[in-house]
Amino acid sequence: MNQVKTTELEKRIYQDYGTVAGIIILKNGQLQYENYFNSCTKDSRIHVYSVTKSVLSLLIGIAVDKGYLKNCSQKVLDFFPDYTVKRREHTIQNITIGNLLTMTAPYKYKYFAPYIKYFKSNDSVRFTLDLLGGKGQIGKFRYTPVIGPDILSGILTKAAGQPVLDFASEYLFSPLGITVKKSIVLQNKEEQIAFNSSREISGWVSDPTGVNTGGWGLTMAPSDMAKIGQLYLNGGVWNGRQIVPAEWIKKSTEVQSKWENLSYGYLWWIIDEKEHAYAALGDGGNVIYVNERKKLVAAVTSLFAPRAKDRIALIREHIEPIFEDC
């Protein structure tokens, strides 16, 4: 490792990426760099926002492999037989798990999601089902960072017969040595703000019904995120054990839908098709980045700040050149 280059990297982080909490870089499965900033340590747990989605995608793949789910073509409403579809509402009946994974499901609101009502809801799945469908086109990309993925979480909860956190602990977190201690119900705005800024809470937010959030709400350390990145780089194998099928990882990280010049897999962003580089991206600058050609994994946690500077640019322009020849 070139000490001069890493010193330059840290200067750039302090100068341009001042909210970074921790960074871990793996190359060929070996630790190449680990550092913490802003008084954070290896034990700090940060709310990683939409990185939660990519973890949920992984769990859906495990559920298919274990037989809890059949495939991505299953209709969403098959899992909610008691849900009453409004008169003349036909679109929702044709939306599949695959549409939710690829962000190609339509929603009834036009531009701005009703976040305030969402956060006040006691049943996030039913609240989201009421917004699903409408006059939009199934198959057209529509990114729903908060409202939407909870339906997948509700489906997994029903299919597996247990909370998503319990399922994750059994089939993913425990095998990888990741600790997520508890489900957390946020009672008010003040608790929400405190959770978002905390560095010490280990958990996964759930609604009052016990359904863990699908699009946000998971806290992790960089080491946890690096393990998930390495699991993907290993084709789903960890310590000789197949945790998630290699075929699921392949499909998850291939282009399944597009939004202008951006490509999307199964709740993973596709960064570079030629190098097969992809990432889990969370608001505020939280990232799990995998470059399969370079055999490199980068995990970045960040304290939240609006409009955080692009961490993918940090990784591609300033981290990869240092470690690609290690």
Score class of each variant (00 low, 15 high):
Gln93Cys: 09
Ala21Arg: 01
His318Phe: 13
Gly61Val: 02
Cys72Asp: 13
Trp259Lys: 09
Asp82Gln: 12
Phe195Asp: 14
Thr301Trp: 03
Lys189Cys: 09
Tyr68Gln: 01
Phe37Leu: 05
Asp82Trp: 10
Val185Cys: 02
Ala63Arg: 01
Gln192Tyr: 09
Asp224Phe: 03
Leu31Ala: 05
Lys117Gly: 08
Ser73Leu: 12
Gly98Gln: 12
Val20His: 02
Tyr289His: 11
Ala298Leu: 05
Ala298Asn: 06
Glu89Gln: 13
Arg316Asn: 11
Ala298His: 10
Ser183Thr: 08
Ser121Gly: 06
Glu190Tyr: 15
Tyr115Glu: 11
Ala226Glu: 03
Val300Ile: 15
His276Ala: 02
Leu156Glu: 07
Asp82Met: 08
Phe323Cys: 12
Ser153Val: 06
Gly285Pro: 07
Phe119Arg: 10
Glu292Asp: 10
Thr84Arg: 13
Cys40Trp: 09
Gly29Arg: 00
Tyr36Phe: 04
Gln192His: 09
Asp123His: 10
Lys117Phe: 11
Ser44Asn: 08
Val4Leu: 13
Val76Ile: 08
Ser153Leu: 04
Lys294Val: 08
Leu267Val: 01
Leu132Thr: 12
Tyr68Val: 02
Gln242Met: 06
Val146Thr: 09
Ile116Pro: 10
Tyr83Arg: 11
Ile155Glu: 09
Leu186Asn: 07
Pro163Ala: 11
Leu303Gln: 10
Glu8His: 07
Leu129Met: 05
Ile271Ala: 02
Asn196Val: 08
Lys42Thr: 08
Gly236Cys: 00
Leu233Pro: 00
Asp43Met: 04
Pro106Thr: 03
Lys250Arg: 13
Tyr266Pro: 03
Phe195Leu: 05
Gly148Gln: 09
Asn234Glu: 02
Ser44Gln: 11
Asp150Glu: 15
Thr102Cys: 10
Asn234Val: 01
Gly229Glu: 08
Trp248Lys: 03
His276Arg: 14
Arg199Ile: 14
Gly22Tyr: 01
Arg293Lys: 15
Tyr232Gln: 03
Gly18Asp: 13
Glu273Gly: 01
Arg126His: 11
Met1Glu: 07
Asp16Trp: 10
Lys75Tyr: 07
Tyr118Thr: 03
Arg311His: 10
Gly210Asn: 07
Asp82Val: 08
Arg12Met: 15
Gly67Phe: 01
Lys258Tyr: 15
Pro321Thr: 12
Glu191Leu: 10
Lys53His: 05
Val164Phe: 08
Leu59Arg: 00
Asp325Met: 12
Pro106Val: 04
Tyr266Arg: 00
Ser57Met: 01
Asn2Thr: 12
Pro306Ser: 13
Asp310Val: 12
Asp325His: 14
Leu56Ile: 11
Ala305Leu: 08
Tyr14Phe: 14
Phe112Thr: 10
Val244Glu: 00
Gly217Arg: 03
Thr219Cys: 13
Pro222His: 01
Gly214Asn: 04
Leu56Phe: 11
Val85Met: 10
Gly282Asp: 14
Ser153Trp: 08
Arg87Ala: 15
Gln15Val: 08
Val164Thr: 07
